[in-house]
Design a protein around this nucleic acid. Structure first.
Length: 267
DNA sequence: CTCGGAGCCTGTCTGC
DNA sequence: TGCAGACAGGCTCCGA
């Protein structure tokens, strides 16, 4: 899916378009995407409500409503959330309608509704946001100790420890940090942890500036592709030359996920 | 407790 | 060309 930079891009876009708007109708072409509540009840609970704000927590999109309810959206692998203004029809020219469309080719994505006061509880098991101030060197060292035997690449993707990094950025971050993704978390030296922290923040921030990575289905809230795919160094580049040293990039499966790295640069 | 594997879905690409 | 099989950005559940 959309990982942290993609979700953040979508949230930033929606923040400009949605707050203050009232939900006048809700339709669904795939009822199963709605979790924990029936379609009719979901509809009943959101129609007539005003959107007060949009935020990201991990890879979740939170759409706050004005009555202590929040719509939670998770895009999983291929979900899209597209927002667009629609031309007012002549008969109701004074009404300015806006469409927000949730679309997911693989149907893994989910919508749910939660009381805003219960959000904290809902996300209590979610790890630290890697772009937050509290994600410090000491914090990262502590997290590495929590799963000492896990390959560092698998640890980066562990949402209960760090929330927001997925398969693309895990490979890119470790290439930037020159760390072998197969290395056990506990084996990282101080200097490597410092570099890892720097690379995590650097890569994620750069990806947000570039509006995310569109390998295939990802689109921002206006339906456009991101551009970070143009600067990927190793992700899906197996068989090609490393941009730094010309060694052939390798692919290996770590934690059941494809992982790409340069066997020479990454130690 | 941790770990690995299956499952959720559909589209696209690979290799025989 | 055709078709089976692998694989894809995530996460949860289940059993060992």
């Amino acid at each position: 899916m959309p990982e942290l930079p993609e979700v953040q891009t979508i949230v930033n876009d929606l923040k400009k378009a949605l707050p203050g708007k009232k939900i006048v109708s809700f339709e669904s072409g795939f009822e199963k995407a709605i979790k924990g509540i029936s379609l009719s009840l979901f509809k009943k609970n959101v129609v007539g409500k005003k959107i007060t704000g949009i935020e990201r927590t991990g890879k979740n999109i939170l759409i706050y409503l004005d009555d202590n309810e929040t719509i939670l959206v998770h895009l999983k692998m291929t979900g899209q959330l597209i927002s667009q203004d629609t031309k007012p029809k002549i008969q109701d020219a004074n009404k300015h309608l806006h469409h927000l469309c949730f679309y997911d080719i693989r149907k893994f994505g989910t919508l749910s509704l939660i009381e805003t006061s219960q959000l904290k509880d809902k996300f209590s098991k979610l790890g630290t946001d890697p772009l937050s101030k509290e994600f410090s060197l000491e914090k990262l060292k502590g997290l590495l100790k929590k799963a000492p035997n896990k390959p560092v690449k698998a640890l980066l993707m562990e949402q209960g420890l760090i929330s927001g990094i997925g398969n693309i950025y895990a490979s890119e971050i470790l290439f930037d940090a020159k760390i072998d993704p197969r290395k056990k978390s506990s084996s990282l030296k101080n200097k490597e942890v410092e570099k890892l922290l720097e690379s995590i923040k650097k890569i994620l921030k750069k990806a947000i500036l570039m509006r995310g990575t569109s390998v295939s289905d990802y689109r921002d809230a206006s339906g456009k592709k991101g551009s970070f795919q143009d600067v990927l160094k190793v992700y899906k580049k197996d068989g090609q030359k490393c941009p730094t040293c010309d060694t052939i990039i390798e692919k290996s499966i770590i934690g059941q996920r494809s992982t790409f790295f340069c066997p020479k640069c990454q130690k």
